[in-house]
Simulated assay, not measured.
Amino acid sequence: MDISIVVPLLNEAESLPELCAWIERVVTENHLSYEIMLVDDGSTDESWEVIEKLSRSNSHIKGIRFQRNYGKSAALNEGFKAVKGDVIITMDADMQDSPDEIPELRRMITEEGYDMVSGWKKKRFDNALTKNIPSKIFNAAASWSSGIKLHDFNCGLKSYKRKVVKSIEVYGEMHRYIPVLAKWAGFRKIGEKVVEHRARKYGTTKFGWERFVNGFLDLATISFVSKFGKRPMHFFGLWGTLFFLVGFIMGLYLVISKLAVTDFTLTNKPAFYLAMTTSIIGMQLFLAGFIAELINRNAPERNVYLIDQKLGI
Rank of each mutant, 00 (worst) to 15 (best):
D2G: 06
I3C: 10
I5G: 06
V6K: 08
V7L: 12
P8F: 08
L9P: 01
E18Y: 12
W22N: 15
W22K: 13
V26A: 06
V26W: 03
T28I: 01
E29N: 07
N30G: 07
L32F: 08
S33V: 02
I36H: 06
V39K: 07
V39H: 11
G42M: 01
G42Q: 00
S47K: 04
S47H: 05
W48A: 02
E52R: 14
S59H: 04
I61L: 07
K62N: 09
F66V: 02
F66T: 03
Q67F: 03
Q67C: 03
N69Y: 03
Y70H: 13
Y70F: 12
Y70S: 12
S73V: 02
A74F: 09
N77E: 07
E78H: 14
G79S: 12
A82F: 12
K84I: 01
G85R: 08
G85A: 05
I88P: 00
I88H: 03
I88V: 15
I88F: 05
T90F: 06
M91I: 13
A93T: 13
M95V: 04
P99E: 13
D100W: 02
D100T: 08
I102Q: 03
E104A: 03
R106K: 15
R107C: 13
R107P: 09
R107N: 14
T110C: 07
E112R: 06
D115K: 09
V117E: 05
W120P: 00
K122D: 04
K122M: 04
R124C: 02
R124A: 08
R124Q: 09
F125H: 05
D126S: 10
A128N: 02
L129V: 11
L129F: 11
I133D: 05
P134I: 01
P134H: 06
S135C: 06
K136D: 15
I137Q: 12
I137M: 10
F138N: 14
A140E: 11
S143G: 15
W144N: 12
I148Y: 12
L150F: 13
Y160T: 06
S167T: 06
S167W: 04
I168S: 08
K183P: 11
W184G: 04
G186Q: 03
R188G: 12
G191H: 09
K193H: 03
V194P: 00
T204I: 04
K206F: 00
W209Y: 15
W209A: 15
V213Q: 14
N214M: 02
G215T: 04
L217K: 15
D218N: 08
H234D: 12
F236W: 13
G237A: 12
G237S: 11
L238F: 15
L238S: 15
L238C: 10
G240F: 02
G240T: 12
L242G: 14
L245A: 11
L245N: 10
G247K: 00
G247V: 04
F248E: 03
I249V: 14
L252T: 10
I256L: 12
K258H: 05
A260Y: 10
T262H: 00
D263Q: 10
L266M: 09
T267M: 06
T267N: 09
T267C: 01
N268A: 15
P270A: 10
A271C: 03
A271P: 01
M276C: 15
T277G: 14
I281E: 13
G282N: 05
L285T: 01
I291C: 02
N296C: 00
N296G: 02
R297V: 02
N298K: 08
P300Q: 05
E301I: 08
E301K: 14
R302N: 14
L306R: 10
